[in-house]
């Protein structure tokens, strides 16, 4: 059994059990299954279920157009949506597209999340913001000249 098959199997098992309940619940358990998914649509489905996803002007990404070093790419996501519940960062072409997310407390925290992420190659970077029943997103292509995944 090769590694890919094994991981796919793991992801499927996780999909059967873990992902049915909300992975993003406030009782924080590290969502292991999310990090094992290998494609962006799977990640979005695992995060938000069937909630409608739409590009929105209420979400903006501040990131370099070109990253000289894929190991450190600064990303800053801001949203003007007042009821933002979570902000997630997904890199389409990374081996594990789900990078990081933050759960916000509407009223107590503003719509901002910044992190430095690793990117294996030039890819689309998307930010998903959950607000109410809807998911708002923004995306940007970042060119990577030197990869940051693996040695």
């Amino acid at each position: 059994m090769n590694r890919r098959l094994f991981l796919t199997g793991m992801a499927l098992c996780a999909g059967g059990f873990g992902l049915l309940k909300s992975v993003m619940s406030m009782a924080m358990e590290w969502p292991k299954a999310l990090f094992e998914l290998e494609s962006e649509p799977d990640v979005v489905k695992a995060l938000f279920g069937d909630a409608p996803v739409a590009e929105s002007g209420g979400v903006s990404i501040k990131a370099p157009l070109q990253a000289e070093n894929g190991a450190v790419v600064p990303i800053k996501v801001t949203t003007t949506l007042a009821d933002a519940e979570s902000i997630s960062i997904v890199v389409e072409k990374n081996p594990a597209p789900f990078i990081t997310s933050v759960n916000l407390q509407p009223g107590a925290s503003g719509g901002l999340y910044s992190a430095r992420i690793k990117m294996g190659q030039t890819s689309k970077v998307a930010a998903y913001v959950k607000a109410g029943d809807k998911v708002h997103m923004a995306a940007q292509e970042i060119k990577v000249t030197v990869g940051g995944c693996g040695g």
Binding site: V73, V102, Y113, S114
Partner: peptide
């Protein structure tokens, strides 16, 4: 106020910002 979930995809010496 906020709970962040991180993983392997976050850079070495992570710098995390919230509001």
């Amino acid at each position: 106020v906020a709970e962040a979930v991180l993983g392997q995809g976050v850079s070495k010496d992570p710098l995390i910002g919230i509001n």
